[in-house]
Simulated assay, not measured.
Amino acid sequence: MKTFKFPARHGYAVEISPFIPTRLACATSQYYGIAGCGTLLVLEQTETGIALVKSFDWNDGLFDVTWSESNEHILLTGGGDGSLQVWDTANPQPGPLQVLKEHTQEVYSVDWSQTREENLVVSGSWDRTAKVWDLSRGGQSLCTLQGHEGVIYSTLWSPHIPGCFASASGDGTLRVWDVKTGRCRLAIPAHKAEILSCDWCKYDQNVIVTGAVDCSLCVWDLRNVRQPLSRLRGHSYAIRRVKFSPFNQTVLASCSYDFTVRLWDYSRTEQPLLETLEHHSEFVCGLDFNLQIPNQVVDCSWDETVKIYTPLCLAAPPPSAR
């Protein structure tokens, strides 16, 4: 396991570059995101550890980060002042290339579309709106989508369907949106609690997982949402982020305020929990799988560390029978 320590900053989100498998970015905040500034860390995985490539400071906390899908140097962050910041790792200047300011409260989620037909960004905010942006068209959003009755914690593009994204909210619903019509296609009362995270399956356009304050994960088939495909229990506090594996259709990871990261196989009706990792001393808020290095995971925590590792359950060959 490789560890990078960033004193006086608390990790909120981490994402590995889609272009450079050894490069990652971490969005951090001072004073646990309650007050103070934020720092974007651009890190490089080496043979012996993790090195700092570049850092960018912002005058408010940073809560999420996403890499551009078209330019290896460009990143986007969401901040506590309601703005989105565009950064360029090749730019010698310390400030952002662009600042997008329309949200009226914290931007808690940003995501860059992965489909080739578009180059869009979606943001989700505590102001209960999601906004879609085309950064090549200036600083105004293309559209604002409303419908959630609680704060939006997570907004994520479908990796399969152009112009489609999902959002998870404090109102307990998971919603699927169509940008072309500007409407909600589906609203699922997924949990009787705040939903803090969601993720799309990389292999099936109809499968989404949600993670909530009720300590459970629910895997949903959008063709039949009367009940989840699987309900995964094991965390003892709220689930902060969920991620599907890019290498195994039914494997996913979750991180929590219980200081743990857990690996699951939702296809297992008995013992879906594969492994529990307890290597942090504070809330674990950021989590990602490496798209190019099989089974490698990165996470970040309020304990001021980023960690890169391969869980034992993924490193071992799969059992021949379940």
Rank of each mutant, 00 (worst) to 15 (best):
V261S: 02
E15L: 02
C164F: 00
V42P: 00
E270N: 10
S141W: 08
G170K: 10
L174K: 05
L174H: 04
T260D: 04
R240C: 14
S256N: 12
F165P: 03
A168Y: 05
D64L: 06
L274N: 13
V306G: 00
T260P: 08
S230N: 12
Q114A: 13
H160L: 06
T89M: 14
D64K: 07
T173E: 12
S17N: 05
R223H: 13
A27M: 05
D214K: 09
L120A: 07
V298C: 15
L40E: 04
V65I: 14
S68T: 07
E149I: 08
I34L: 10
T77P: 00
P7A: 13
Y237Q: 15
H280A: 11
K192R: 14
R128A: 09
L41Q: 06
L291S: 14
S136L: 13
V219D: 04
S158L: 10
F244W: 11
N295T: 13
K307V: 06
S236F: 10
W87P: 01
T46R: 02
W133P: 01
I161N: 10
W264A: 01
F165E: 04
V209K: 05
G61F: 00
L135V: 14
A253Y: 07
L135T: 14
T66Q: 09
W87D: 05
Q227T: 11
V110R: 01
V297D: 03
E117F: 02
L217R: 03
W133S: 02
H103K: 10
T104A: 12
Y32Q: 08
T48C: 07
F244H: 07
K131W: 04
L196M: 08
V207C: 11
L314H: 08
W177C: 05
A321M: 12
Q296W: 14
G61T: 00
R223G: 15
P272L: 07
R183M: 14
R183Y: 13
A315F: 08
D288Y: 06
D221H: 14
I195D: 04
D265M: 10
S154V: 08
N91V: 07
S216P: 02
K101P: 02
A8F: 13
P159N: 09
P318T: 05
T155R: 06
S236G: 12
V298H: 05
F19A: 10
E72P: 07
R185L: 14
V132Y: 06
G286H: 04
S123N: 03
L312H: 12
Y108L: 15
L263A: 04
V110A: 11
C143E: 03
P96D: 02
T260V: 10
S29Y: 08
Y203C: 07
I74G: 01
A316W: 08
L232N: 09
T115M: 06
G49H: 10
P272H: 11
R175E: 02
D214F: 06
K2E: 03
E278W: 09
P21D: 15
G61K: 01
D258A: 09
Q114L: 13
Y32H: 12
R175G: 03
Q140H: 15
D288H: 13
L135W: 13
T260L: 09
Q98C: 05
G33S: 05
A90V: 06
